[in-house]
């Protein structure tokens, strides 16, 4: 894996310390709720900006903001290592590559305006997708409060998201070692692909 886990991820403020309160009170007592909501709002707003921005440069900048806010969200969700990975791979590599490509493009990647009809149908279909997702998730969302507020689901283990824990998952042959190794052929395809496409480009 590319990101060497050099330092510990920021420890999350554990909300599960002490006796488990009853469900309604816990709902109100999630201490990270505020930051999480804030990160979600930023993520959503920046995603919207990616979709709507005229010109590719602005979209890339919005994508960078989006990526950062997602990383913050990961950190808030007790996933420090993933947050670091997100920073390194997404913000650090992918978004930058996007920026390069956009900068390389002749007229700065200017985009043609979409016709109103296209915009309307696009938004309608997007809304339809959201509605379809809601059919699947709606009951879960409403049930989640009950489910996770109970004693069993509520306790977030204190070691969650530690480098050691994730390392065990990734390098245990019975867990995720196989998929981890299987990314090798995938990356090989990507490498061959980028080189081959470059060579194809380079020839008349």
């Amino acid at each position: 894996m590319k990101h060497e886990p050099g330092r510990l991820p920021p420890r999350r403020l554990d909300s599960a310390q002490g006796p488990v309160p009853s469900a309604p009170s816990r709902l109100l007592m999630d201490p990270l709720l505020g930051p999480i909501v804030a990160a979600c709002v930023v993520a959503l707003a920046s995603a919207l900006l990616v979709v709507l921005a005229q010109g590719a440069i602005r979209a890339v900048v919005a994508l960078l903001a989006h990526s950062l806010s997602i990383a913050a969200l990961y950190a808030l969700l007790a996933a420090g290592l993933v947050a670091v990975g997100q920073l390194l791979i997404y913000s650090g590599a992918i978004v930058v590559v996007f920026l390069f490509v956009v900068a390389l493009l002749p007229p700065g990647g200017r985009e043609l305006h979409s016709q109103p009809r296209r915009v309307v149908t696009g938004i309608a279909v997007g809304a339809a997708l959201l509605a379809a997702l809601y059919t699947g998730l709606g009951p879960t969302i409403s049930a989640q409060a009950q489910l996770l507020a109970g004693p069993a689901g509520s306790a977030v283990p204190s070691g969650l998201g530690s480098v050691a824990g994730i390392g065990h998952e990734l390098f245990d042959a019975d867990k995720l070692l196989v998929p981890f190794e299987l990314t090798a052929p995938l990356l090989l395809v990507a490498i061959i692909g980028s080189v081959a496409l470059w060579r194809r480009q380079g020839t008349p």
Binding site: I89, K175, L176, F180, T183
Partner: peptide, 19 residues
């Protein structure tokens, strides 16, 4: 922890995809 480990692998997939 599995979910986070999977998320890391997905980041790799996304990188390959973007390239």
């Amino acid at each position: 922890d599995a979910g986070q480990a999977i998320a890391l692998i997905v980041l790799v997939i996304a990188a390959a995809e973007a390239v």
